[in-house]
Design a protein around this nucleic acid. Sequence first.
RNA 1: GGUGAGGUGGCUGAGUGGUCGAAAGCAGCGCUUUGCUAAAGCGCCGUACCCCAAAAGGGUACCGAGGGUUCGAAUCCCUCCCUCACCGCCA
Length: 422
Amino acid sequence: MLDIRLIREQPDLVKSRLAARSGEAAAKIDEVLAVDLERRKAETALQQCNADRKRLSKEIGGKRAKGEDTAGTEARVREIGDEIARLTEQTTAFDERQRQLLLEMPNLPHANAPLGTDAKDNPVIRSWGEKPALMEPLDHVALGTNLKLFDPERAAKLSGSGFICFTGAGARLERALIQFMLDLHTREHGYLEMSPPFVVRRECMVGTTQLPKFEEDMYGLEEQQLFLAPTAEVPVTNFHREEILAASELPKKFVAYTPCFRREAGSAGRETRGIIRVHQFDKVELVKITLPEESYAEHESLTANAERVLQLLGLHYRVIELCTGDMGFAAAKAYDLEVWSPGQNAYLEVSSCSNCEDFQARRMNLRFKDAEGKNRFCHTLNGSGLALPRVFAALIENYQRPDGSVGIPEKLQPYFGAAEIR
RNA sequence: GGUGAGGUGGCUGAGUGGUCGAAAGCAGCGCUUUGCUAAAGCGCCGUACCCCAAAAGGGUACCGAGGGUUCGAAUCCCUCCCUCACCGCCA
């Protein structure tokens, strides 16, 4: 959520930064300002009435103690009460309208974020490794089918299209990857492992910005008023919601494995081959809660931590920086990690590392006490470390052999328990 | 799922209709005393928002959340959430 004071004091700055993202949000700023003005007017009037009522009610108490008549004052307070009811309704309505507008307004891109309208404008920051030399590589669907690593048809029988069921060595590879990533981030990168609930309350989804704007992409449990988390970012970032942390305990670094549930409404037909886009997938997620001054340095290291997974697996990848038009709703700055897929002859996004600055923290009321004892909003960051099915797909495609078998990267072998799949 | 007891400031804990944003204690900060430490004494010590160009200052709200009763609610009533205890069921 954007700071209403910033909008009020520097509307042109806010508008121009939002415009770099999309015209739609920038156009709403004038409405926010108008509502804010009305809201404050109503609030000031309401407070004046409350002050009057408070004062007169005390007077009544004093007069009664002395046995004096209070009928006139009581009538007057009753009138004020009616006015208070009217003004309260008004204030609440403006409040809600303002909140609604602000909740649907995306974060301001960082001033240095590359300008652009969509993915084609995302600059490549660096790349690692090289494309493997493969003669007519099979894609992961063919490999997976041949080696019986997963079974989309039967998964559809269970849950519908867009679901996947890993089988045999495939299920084992999935598990090995999860454990490998968790061990790496906890033992070498200093993250605290979490195993959070997979279903969360609505407030959490609002806190990390999945709601209210993206409700059609979420799975909900209507009756219970709960949502299936679309990423561990939701339960883990919200872990400290409504808290005031000590500056000395920051940064907090969390890593969590969870399944992720996404309806992917509107993405039918795009990038949906095999296990590239499914309604339920596994992911190891990195989350940081930091001091504002340190969030950009922490963003770099978080990205490096995610990259390390691909390096240890020996998979060629590149890092791109998201341009203003392609960045996620909550992010001020974001890098994507894209792994090379020989089967699709394309790069696949396996991680998006975002610095949300105080955008989520405002919604969650997540603060820390600074050296002067003042409460300030924390910065929050998150990034996949990594998303499993696409790493799985890239791995078997990159390590396929002419005889149809698949090698296992050396670092993964202790987790997988074998050097190859055949 | 059932029954019972609770939810008050950083913590403990008083407060059952009016001068209560809230006693007291602890913790914290400042000062005094003291050879140092300890101890003692005194003072300060919640958050959010609004008014004000800003500062100074003033105001409103907040005692789990939301409604209601009342001139006036931490206090009375209703609904919900959460915690604890016991019973039942269960991986």
